[in-house]
């Protein structure tokens, strides 16, 4: 999550101070990504260091204002122009869990899938309730919620797919796949078959 670019986007609309930035950031994203004021000041420090924003005086109450620089503006527009890559996000714990569940004997994979799906669906219901209550003119908040809605939906579709794949595997091979043995003298069965098939 790019706090840096979020703050630059706010500063692009005029000089602001830390608490103001935090409050505006949260109201734009409907508090989906809460910030503490410490994160805001740390980020402002980095923006200053990198020449993307700079201090712009204080008001009577001692609030230090920051304003965006030309370099900051270029950085902001580059951010809007670039698609977001998901490649660097942490590996998905759920995918790892299922990958493990289908290979470890004695795990009820179907139950794992079902529990996860019911859980994700409850989250999806919650997002949908929030959507029902969202003000019609608050497009920013609605789009943020819909982002969560579509992500949850994608996860549920993937879980449906997993369930179907597992059911199909269980039809063809009723016994759960055993762990590969190390010393059975046939380490290349899978690899060999694949290679043969490709030739």
């Amino acid at each position: 999550m790019s706090i840096k670019h979020g703050l630059l986007a706010l500063l692009d609309q005029g000089p602001r101070y830390g608490y103001q930035l935090r409050a505006e950031f949260e109201s734009r994203t409907g508090s989906t990504w809460p910030l503490n004021v410490g994160q805001v000041y740390t980020t402002l420090g980095r923006l200053d260091r990198d020449g993307l924003a700079q201090p712009d005086g204080e008001d009577d109450e001692g609030h230090v204002f920051y304003r965006i620089t030309d370099a900051g503006r270029r950085e902001l527009h580059a951010w809007f122009d670039e698609p977001v890559s998901r490649a660097d996000r942490p590996r998905d714990e759920l995918a790892i869990k299922l990958a493990m569940a289908v290979t470890v004997p004695g795990v009820d994979v179907v139950a794992v899938v079902q529990h996860q799906r019911a859980h994700t669906l409850r989250m999806l219901q919650d997002y949908t309730r929030l959507k029902m209550r969202a003000a019609d003119d608050d497009l920013a908040w609605q789009l943020v919620l819909e982002n969560l809605v579509f992500q949850a939906e994608a996860e549920i579709r993937w879980l449906d797919h997993c369930e179907a794949r597992i059911a199909r595997r269980d039809l063809t091979a009723p016994a759960p796949a055993p762990l590969p043995a190390v010393s059975d003298g046939a380490p290349a069965v899978r690899g060999g078959r694949t290679r043969k098939g490709r030739r």
């Binding site: 799906r117 019911a118 994700t120 669906l121 999806l124 219901q125 809605v149 549920i156």
Partner: peptide, 23 residues
């Protein structure tokens, strides 16, 4: 479609003719 089911108060899942899950 889960996105549409999410408008419901309660969602139940059927598989092979049985109720297998319930939010």
């Amino acid at each position: 479609e889960a996105r549409h089911a999410a408008w419901a108060d309660r969602v139940v899942f059927l598989r092979d003719g049985r109720l297998v899950d319930d939010t």
